[in-house]
Write a protein that binds this DNA or RNA. Structure first.
Lengths: 185, 185
DNA sequence: CACAATATTGAACACTGTTCAATATCGCGC
DNA sequence: GCGCGATATTGAACAGTGTTCAATATTGTG
């Protein structure tokens, strides 16, 4: 209940509109009760992000590329990722605004959800380089996707509102195409 | 004075430790006075980020690559960028945590500072593809650097604490090398 | 019905951003 | 030195925030 309420709060009021009191009252409880379920607001946000990662995974999985060409698959995956960020911007933002207090690593179940998403990229990248080792493909997938993510982040946060700018999709295509060429070589 | 105080506040207490009252009292004033100088906390953060962008530019400029090889230059630039993020983590974080209220675009002077930083990447990328147009080099520089930035972000925010992970520098090298290969082709 | 185990409350504490009437300080002409 | 207008500065007030915890309410069971 609390997490559902938190989700709609974030989507309607933005990530700054999230507060423990609002979440509590949205489900007919008081703040005190919320603190019996969650250790802190950080804990609530972490669990909310867990759900968002699940939703993102399902979003990507539900929109597979039609063609079998690896290049097309990767570009389509990037477009689908960008579309999610553009559609669920507030929730997607919370995903990366949450910064664990230093030394406070992310829990394993969270990293597992992250791995699952990266797995989709690995699968799309694999047919492109059968000659490479499993580990190298995994590393390449993470590097490439971190790159696509970076483009998406800077675009959504308006750090790319510069003269002569391309669309997010065009930038992602450029990154993927050039990276693929190099990775295949 | 206020911006200097804000800087040291962020570096000592982290980005969450920044508050208008703390900044004001750090320079011997009250909150009210601070609001005669800055429109809002958002305004203060934006100006703080402007200084950080200047500092980042100087940091990169003060550490030029020794070799003339474009590949080395780009890798060195990435390493220097990563080093800044690791050294001034809190300040660097504020740079991207600040999200302008929707419709509220970043001011031109801020975008100009961003362009200046991107210019360093363009300069490093240029000798690699003289046959390409000016605009294409600019676009490639932005795409590549957004990618390096994405790697850096996910690393610092612990989104890459997965099994079989590489260092930030290794990931950046992988991205740059493969992108370069594709871009040269 | 009683009693122990849960569940829930709401007030309290120490913060936060922001505003604005009231006050203090300053520079300058006389 | 004095007065006065222009700045500069204050600090209390408002509405919110995360978090805690003694006090209360509700529940299931013997």
């Amino acid at each position: 209940m609390a997490l559902e309420a938190a989700e709609s709060l974030v989507t309607t009021e933005g990530y700054k509109g999230l507060s423990t009191r609002k979440v509590a009252s949205a489900i007919g409880y008081t703040v005190g009760t919320l603190y019996l379920v969650f250790d802190s607001q950080e804990d609530l946000v972490l669990q909310l992000n867990g759900r968002t990662l699940d939703a993102l995974y399902e979003w990507l999985r539900a929109r597979p590329a039609l063609s079998g060409d690896p290049g097309n698959n990767l570009r389509h995956l990037a477009e689908t990722y960008i579309a999610y960020a553009n559609t669920e911007t507030a929730r997607w933002n919370v995903l990366f605004e949450y910064i664990a207090a230093e030394g406070n690593d992310l829990p394993d179940w969270y990293l597992a959800k992250l791995s699952k998403v990266f797995g989709l990229v690995e699968a799309a990248l694999k047919p492109l380089a059968d000659h490479r080792g499993e580990q190298e493909i995994q590393q390449a997938a993470r590097v490439l996707w971190a790159g696509v993510h970076g483009i998406c982040t800077l675009k959504i946060r308006h750090r790319m509102d510069l003269a002569g700018g391309q669309t997010t999709e065009q930038m992602a295509h450029m990154l993927i195409d050039n990276f693929m060429l190099g990775f295949q070589a």
